[in-house]
């Protein structure tokens, strides 16, 4: 076993016994490990490092980023869920490994709603649905009409099977009873190149990944998946505005810790996170990544997660896909 469960219990017991404010002032007392369940340089790693950098600057704590990639981000998150809830291990989770994968993948051992202390949402990014500039689809409605007329005729590229982008499309298909031909890619490079060349008709990906090509005119944005238009693409309508009521799908990042963290430690962490998240420099760094910056408020997160988990579970049920 890689995890020292016994020692975790001991630490928990100690944490409960000595839960005085005086101890909180001693928090963290040593390095805080920050688990990023994805490889360095990825879409989760960069915002994580921006947040960690600001936390260290403001609090003087020593926070160490540990990249623990594997199995779609579930290995690192699983490790996080099992670590000592002493506040010395926290990390960054996101839509895919916290909300989608537990429904999609029976091998995931954690429960997103009970195994974590929800610290706060950091950013959210909608996805953009795009086509090439010579495409017959001038609007999102043109595309929907074509799919309804000729089911299965439209080739739909995504950055990968089981990604939030792919699941968003499945959700669209379920809600609108559409038949799409899914063409998964491995990452954005080849996918963007193929949609530009018109090899696939439609592509869905994070707004920042398609934005430069929309700006330069080689891709045409048809819709965004957020509830409100995205500030980066203010003129592009939302999917919901085409009769997909309540449709909203986004790639969010959030800070989490293992369940059962002592109150005082949690209070220091929450205060530090709130301070970091309201810092203008941090907000502008995150916005430069094409994200909408959120508050980092734990209550907001706690209110948001259950419905998110449920929505994705329903999509997974409806499409009969299973990763095993």
């Amino acid at each position: 076993m890689r995890y020292r469960n016994g020692s975790g219990l001991v630490a928990l017991a100690i944490g409960l016994v000595v839960a005085f404010p005086a101890v909180a002032q001693n928090y963290p007392g040593s390095n805080i490990n920050f688990i990023v369940p994805y490889p360095p340089g990825g879409g989760t790693d960069i915002p994580a490092r921006i947040v960690v950098d600001k936390l260290m600057e403001q609090t003087g704590w020593n926070v160490v980023v540990l990249n623990q990639p594997g199995a779609g981000g579930t290995i690192g998150l699983d490790q996080l869920a099992r670590s000592n809830p002493d506040g010395l291990t926290i990390g960054m989770a996101q839509t895919s490994n916290l909300a989608v994968n537990p429904a999609l993948n029976p091998e995931v051992n954690y429960d997103p709603l009970t195994d974590f202390t929800l610290l706060g949402l950091v950013t959210t990014q909608p996805m953009g649905i795009v086509t090439h500039n010579g495409s017959p689809f001038e609007t999102f409605q043109d595309f929907i009409d074509e799919v309804r007329e000729n089911p299965g005729s439209v080739l739909f590229g995504t950055p990968g099977t089981g990604t939030v982008a792919h699941m968003s499309i499945e959700r669209l298909a379920v809600q609108g009873d559409l038949e799409l031909e899914h063409v998964p890619y491995t990452g954005i490079a080849q996918a963007i190149s193929d949609v530009m060349a018109g090899v696939v008709d439609i592509y869905i990906g994070s707004v920042p990944s398609v934005l430069p090509h929309v700006t330069s005119g080689s891709l045409r944005a048809l819709a965004v998946t957020s509830a409100q238009p995205d500030p980066l693409l203010p003129d592009v309508p939302t999917v919901a505005s085409f009769g997909f009521e309540g449709y909203e799908s986004s790639d969010w990042k959030a800070l989490v810790g293992p369940a059962g963290m002592p109150e005082d430690v949690l209070a220091s962490l929450n205060a530090a996170i709130a301070a970091a998240m309201s810092d203008p420099e941090l907000r502008s760094l995150l916005e430069a990544q094409g994200s909408t910056v959120l508050s980092g408020d734990p209550e907001e997160f706690a209110a948001f997660l259950p419905s998110e988990v449920q929505t994705w579970a329903e999509v997974v049920d409806a499409i009969d896909i299973q990763i095993d």
């Binding site: 340089g41 960069i46 921006i50 920042p208 934005l211 430069p212 090509h213 700006t215 330069s216 080689s218 502008s284 760094l285 430069a288 990544q289 094409g290």
Partner: peptide, 13 residues
Amino acid sequence: GALMIHGIAPGPQ
């Protein structure tokens, strides 16, 4: 990513 942090949009332009 390093470019975007500095507010520079990568792309053909």
